[in-house]
């Protein structure tokens, strides 16, 4: 590998350059657009250098859009809040439900445990609409449709399998003797769980939590089907923008930037754990 020919080196660099441009240019371009007025965006040929404006962000954040035809209400900040609220509470609920289960699956060999663990895994792979469509009718009947509780319940579909399977691996990596020693020292089972197992698995729990937050945030279909405009997160809300009257392209771009910013920032922060999370614990980064 050390004796690559110059030609090959050039080829590798060019290839890498093309790949980087393909994958990063769209994000770069949308960020540029978000600082442009509609006139600047519509100009042909497009320009990389322009005098940036913050008006798109101002309109989104103030929630008020002044157009020639009058003032328009924007609910984007509410969507952003919904995304934050739904993702955070779903992850917290999934942690409370999933971490003890992951511990049980890691420490006790029992038939039902394996069954639950693999059911959770197969949920991860089942078509979401298969669950969502009957659920939308069911929720109508039991009064859970268009409620945060109903949505948080459904978000467990993505959060719970992720947390159970990642955290389980971390629990399995703790030597059982460490826990035995703590028990023999005179601590109850619960003390051992909270003071030994959980602290030692904390990197895994944090990683699983961050990842499920990202996936919950990025989810689109759950709220599309089960939530009304009032409960919808940014993924659904931003899409509704396209058809809304009077919206400028710059504002759509700004909405995109605001809605991907949290997950991109979290991903950069948690990149050490991403591989393990994406493969449900099968590959360590």
């Amino acid at each position: 590998m050390d004796h690559t020919s110059p030609l090959e080196t050039i080829f590798r660099r060019v290839a890498l350059g093309v790949i980087l441009v393909f994958f990063l240019f769209p994000i770069f371009w949308i960020v540029l657009m978000s600082f442009q007025t509609n006139e600047q965006i519509l100009r042909i040929p497009p320009r990389v250098f322009f005098s940036p404006t913050l008006s798109n962000y101002k309109a989104l954040i103030s929630g008020e859009l002044i157009t020639t035809v009058g003032s328009l209400k924007l609910t984007f900040m509410h969507n952003l809040w919904n995304s934050f609220f739904l993702s955070t509470t779903s992850v917290l609920v999934a942690l409370v439900l999933g971490v003890p289960a992951a511990y049980a699956f890691a420490r006790f060999k029992f038939r039902l445990g394996e069954d639950i663990a693999f059911t959770l895994l197969s949920i991860r792979f089942a078509p979401p609409l298969l669950i969502l469509l009957p659920l939308s009718l069911l929720f109508n009947e039991i009064g859970l449709s268009d409620t945060y509780i109903g949505l948080i319940w459904v978000y467990q579909l993505i959060c719970l399998p992720l947390i159970v399977w990642i955290v389980r691996g971390y629990f399995e990596d703790i030597s059982p003797d460490i826990e035995h020693a703590y028990r023999i020292d005179g601590h109850s089972w619960a003390q051992t769980f909270f003071r030994i197992a959980v602290p030692l698995a904390r990197p895994g729990i944090a990683a699983a939590g961050l990842l499920s937050f990202i996936f919950a945030w990025n989810n689109f279909v759950f709220a599309l089907i089960l939530g009304s405009a009032d409960k919808q997160p940014v993924t659904v809300g931003a899409l509704a923008f396209v058809t809304a009257a009077g919206i400028s392209y710059g504002q759509i771009a700004a909405a995109i930037v605001l809605s991907i910013l949290p997950t991109l920032a979290l991903a950069l922060y948690a990149q050490r754990y991403l591989v393990e999370g994406l493969s449900l614990g099968a590959v360590k980064g």
Binding site: I178, H180, A181, D185
Partner: peptide, 30 residues
């Protein structure tokens, strides 16, 4: 009796020290 109620001290072959606690806290645990 559960392990914590038997009044036993045990030293493990692999030491089984609590990695996130100082030596002092390890010893003070019982």
């Amino acid at each position: 009796l559960a392990p914590d109620r038997r009044g036993i001290g045990m030293a493990f072959q692999n030491f089984a020290l609590y990695p996130h606690m100082s030596a002092f806290d390890n010893i003070a645990s019982p």
